[in-house]
Each structure stands twice: as C-alpha cells, then as structure tokens.
Nucleic acid binder design. Structure first.
Lengths: 204, 204
DNA sequence: CGGCTGTTTGAGCTGTTTCAACACCCGTGG
DNA sequence: CCACGGGTGTTGAAACAGCTCAAACAGCCG
C-alpha cells in the first residue's frame, strides 16, 4: 500500500490488527501525552518492521514523512509467514534486538546529553547508514544528508525545543562543522569532530 | 549461578558469548559515557532475558542489586534450546516486544517529562507488578514498595541528579502522596493521584 | 508580488543542576 | 554501651542550560 505525506497509518492506542514492513520512504513514530507533549520514538526506514507489539493496541502513531510504501500483514498471519519464509524468523529477532540497542543509546541521549551532544548524536545517527561499514568516527570526507523531517520533529526526537535545535544548528554552522542548505539538507564538514561531540569527548 | 550484591555479570563492550535468564533478585542495567556519565536503561527482574544482542558485544553493563541468581546459556546454544522448548520462541518474541514498548514510554519520560512527572512515573512503574491486573490509575489503597536501588540509581534512571530526586521525594511526602521508611521503602498513599501526575494530568 | 508556513534570532525567565554544608544510618572498635 | 567514622541521603543558595514568549526573517507557491 501507499501512504501519502503526512498521513498516519498506525494510531497509538488503536487495536493492533496488522503489522507493516516499510518498503519505501521514511516515517516518524511518536507517542503523545494527554496535554499534547510529543516524543518521537524513532524514524523508520527501508526494511523496518512496524506495529509488532505484545499488547492488544499499538504503542505509537506512525506518520509518513514524504510518500511511503509498505506491505501490510494481519498479525494472525505471522505464523504462516514464518512457516513459508523461515529466514524471516531470524530477521525478526535481529530487528528486535538491534532496535533495543538503538533504544538504549537514545535513552543516553535523552537522559544525560547536552543540547550540543544531542544534535551531534542525531546527525551522526542519520549519517551512519550513508557511510556504511567504516566507522564514521575517523571519517574525514564531508557527508551530505537529506533531512526529511522538520525542525519540530528533530526537537521532539531529541527532547528539545525547536528554538534550541535551531540555535545549535547555528552554532555548528558558525564553527564550520556543518553547512546547511534550505533547512532540509545538511552536509557534515567534520564528521569525526561531530562524532566526538556526540560522545562527550573534547579534543584540544 | 549466583552473583553477589554489587557485582557486574555483564560488561558493556565485552564480547557477547552468553545470555542469561534472571531467576532471582534484581539487577540494574546501564551504559556509560567516556567521561563517566551514566544512564540506567532498565531494572531487570524475575524472568527477564539479558544479553541478547544482534551485535558482537554487550550494549550495557549489568550489576546485581542485592544477591542475584541466574541461568547462563552460551549464545550458540539458543537454537538448540528453542528446539527443545518450542514455547521459548514465543517467550523471546513477547519479551522483546514488551521491552520495546517499555522503552518507548521511557523515552517519553526522559525527553518530555518534568522531574515531578518522572519520579511519579518511576513509582507507578515500580508499583505496577505488585498490583497486577487491575489498573493502578483508580487504585485507592496504599501500596508499599521495596526500593532496592539507591537514590543515585534512581537519578541515573530518570535523567536527574540525586538532589532533584531527593527534593521531589520530599515534596511528595509533604503533599501526603507517599510516606518513606528509611530510604529503601516507600508506600504510595494516593496511587491514583501519582498516576495522574505521571501522565501530566492536573485534577483540581 | 502578497500570504502562508516554517525557521531563525533576541531577551528574559525558570526548573534543574551545581556546589557546599549538614543530618542520618549503621557497623566498628574502644 | 556509646563515641567514632564513612557512606548515603537531605537541605540550602547560587549559577546556568535550555525554555518561553515575541518578533523578524526566509522560503515557497499560487
């Protein structure tokens, strides 16, 4: 199925009938508090499984960032699917535990890092799929990233306000660490330094 | 195997040879930043699986809170185990996805909640296994909890400082919401109100 | 060229942290 | 039995990072 930009295809709290595999585009996953405060719990991309839950209802809302394509499966079909594609079993387990590891580093970001460190962590995380195998830490080449999410989304992902996100982008720009094109594209000019900032390391 | 209080049985970054099932006691799971900042990513209790990871190394350190008993299995044995105990498969999946759901609510705690709301969330979370089936939200009876972890642990779990945790305990006490015995035992005098605070709901 | 939305910048404020002093609990040894 | 530590928890005052409120700005599209 195809979901157009801004549409929600999973609703927090709704009965969890189906699960999805994302086959194109990206989506933001978030939860809300009764008074409207929002926390983005992740950005889904190609190959991610969404809507697997042990409870009766979805734990988050999923909204398309740009147009998204996905495959929908009823929860009840999961056993049949695994039977037909035995390798899926391993995928599911691997996906779950790698998501758990990511969550743990997100907890560190939200619980213990400063605004600078949070934004640096975000940029490094966004860059890591692009630069693949070799560690970004000692990457010297500039890396250009598309940022399909708004400043508000970044803020709600990092537990900050849009103003703080904007100001911190400004700082990084002034320090020559990044350069920004039109607010939806960044190039990391010094990935190694950003990675150090993300981990709270000061090199002098 | 038995692990005595304060001992670490999983080291962050160490090669992940084994995984564990916790069969007695409780443990804290945490990650560290190079400069020593600490984030507790969870408290493990009876029946929890620890050390399952898709990568080569453990993502967190696990330290016993009081004495702990656990079963150790080499990672390589997991397939054989599942073969012998087919129901284990479901347990693993259920455990993983319920842990993911918990993680999402922890992200909300760390990213968007105030100190009051964080501590209330913590107390409600600690109480929920005790009061089981019926929702704690409209629970009127006082609930007494043991708190095996130190104030420092609570602070590192909630992304606060020990001083803020202590002050907030003081506030709750003054407001008649809890009563504290010797810093390692709390009774929730108004669980419903605490649950509302945890969710950012103000009732007047 | 207006009008809309999203982003940046500025100034002042606030909740949480930091730093420091003090109180408590408890095991030890005089 | 009680004074003495040492670790842990509490309380206070000052500082600061990030938030709030408000206004200016930049794209972007009709």
């Amino acid at each position: 199925m195809v979901v157009s930009s801004g549409r929600c295809f999973i609703q927090e709290g709704a009965p969890a009938h189906d699960f999805y595999v994302l086959t194109g585009g990206r989506a933001k996953l978030f939860t809300l508090m009764p008074d409207g405060r929002r926390q983005i719990v992740g950005f889904a991309e190609l190959g991610d499984f969404l809507g697997l839950t042990s409870s009766e209802t979805y734990a988050f809302t999923a909204e398309a960032l740009g147009d998204v394509t996905l495959c929908r499966f009823p929860h009840s079909a999961i056993d049949r699917l695994v039977e037909r594609f035995p390798r899926l079993r391993g995928r599911l387990q691997k996906e779950a535990s790698s998501e758990l590891v990511k969550m743990q580093s997100r907890l560190m970001v939200l619980g213990r890092k400063t605004a600078r460190e949070r934004l640096a962590s975000f940029l490094v995380e966004q860059a890591s799929p692009c630069c693949g195998h070799h560690a970004l830490h000692d990457e010297q080449e500039p890396i250009t990233l598309p940022l399909p999410m708004s400043r508000t989304d970044i803020a709600d992902y990092l537990g900050l306000t849009i103003e703080t996100v904007s100001r911190t982008f400004g700082l990084f720009r002034k320090e020559g660490l990044i350069s920004v094109k039109g607010a939806s594209s960044v190039t990391l000019l010094a990935p190694g330094v950003l990675s150090d900032i993300a981990n709270g390391i000061k090199r002098d």
